[in-house]
Nucleic acid binder design. Structure first.
Lengths: 200, 200
DNA sequence: CGCCAGGGGTGACATCTGTCACGCCCGTAT
DNA sequence: ATACGGGCGTGACAGATGTCACCCCTGGCG
């Protein structure tokens, strides 16, 4: 019997998946969580064999949950996401995720992936993997990404500078470089591009 | 037997819902569509009793699909959405939607709502309805919303002005008023608020 | 060792944005 | 008819933003 923990902030898909998985006779859904913190807490308590984690969750996202769990207990995590970008996949794999599945796959594949992962295999959706190989890596340095992240909600230069403990001039310099590299004219367009490509 | 058409761009939730609904013995899923155009085409061809439409779809969104179908055939539409804001609900009801359900509800409620709607009732999620009654209508004028829409991707004042055939100064004025009304400091924050509240 | 990329910073400058005070035109409610 | 609010526009101005040249420091690496 494979003991599975489910985490997704959207109740409809969470309960739908739970209902479907319960129909499988080798899978047992032992917890349903609606955010990252809850997922970590329940996983530590229940020690599931496999965690099926949505990437987009309030608080901790799926990758962060996986990171914490891998450090603490022997469970294997599958991350599910609607935006399956190469950047996201890289981030997920770097943090020790055992499975990666976009939501563009049908629900019936979920059980199959859970079984593979429970058996010790790694599973990465072939299509996303192919995308990731035709590697479009971010041309931005880590620090530049920090700046972009800090400014992704329309924050002013001053606010970004304070958030990162930098001088405003430095922030402006980073932004200037970013705009050049991405060849756009405003920060917000840079943020949109970076989000689309999964760099933030 | 209630004949149901399903439309959602996310294959995982679409197939999960379809699988669950097929377990009900008074409901028959006669089509699964992955975008608005397809939903319209299939609905016209198959004349389903009820259409379960995701709001967020590429091309036509759920409300637009419902609008077109209501003009053409006697089917009843339920719109499902992850962001159930009062503004969205108003838009949906105005276009003749028979049911409105946020994805924060569990999957088991879907069948119940389908039955009610098929029986001729209207169904609006009570929580969203309550929100909509404590009416937080947009304080922005139509024109101001236009400006905000035109600038939602980080466009410059000049680009917005050209897009709307306005003088740059006028755009700046509108923006200035918007920022005042929403009490924020930058356009991008204004855009974020407006998107959150369902005004754009 | 020198060289160089990356992080951090400064100062100066041109431009863009946001603010404010006006004025004009139009539809409509009084 | 008059007043009023909304859309549209101008001009002026302060402050924010983006650009550029140049600075220092650090940690690789040939």
């Amino acid at each position: 019997m494979i003991r599975v923990l489910l985490a997704d902030d959207e109740a409809m898909i969470r309960s739908a998946l739970a209902a479907l998985l319960r129909l499988e006779d080798d899978i047992e859904v032992i917890a349903e969580c609606e955010d990252g913190e809850q997922a970590v807490a329940e996983a530590l308590r229940l020690q599931p064999d496999v965690c099926l984690l949505d990437l987009e969750m309030p608080g901790l996202d799926g990758v962060q949950v996986s990171e914490r769990l891998n450090r603490a207990i022997a469970t294997r995590c599958i991350v599910v996401t609607r935006h399956a970008r190469p950047g996201v996949l890289r981030r997920a794999l770097a943090s020790g995720v055992a499975g990666f599945l976009p939501k563009s796959r049908g629900a019936h594949e979920v059980a199959a992936v859970i079984r593979r992962v429970a058996a010790g295999a790694r599973y990465v959706d072939p299509e996303v993997a192919a995308d990731a190989l035709s590697d479009e890596r971010s041309p931005l340095t880590d620090r530049e990404l920090d700046v972009l992240r800090a400014g992704r909600r329309g924050e002013t230069t001053g606010q970004i500078a304070r958030a990162l403990s930098l001088a405003p001039g430095t922030v402006r310099n980073h932004i200037s470089v970013i705009l050049g590299k991405l060849s756009v004219g405003t920060r917000q367009q840079a943020v949109l591009i970076a989000e689309e490509r999964g760099w933030i």
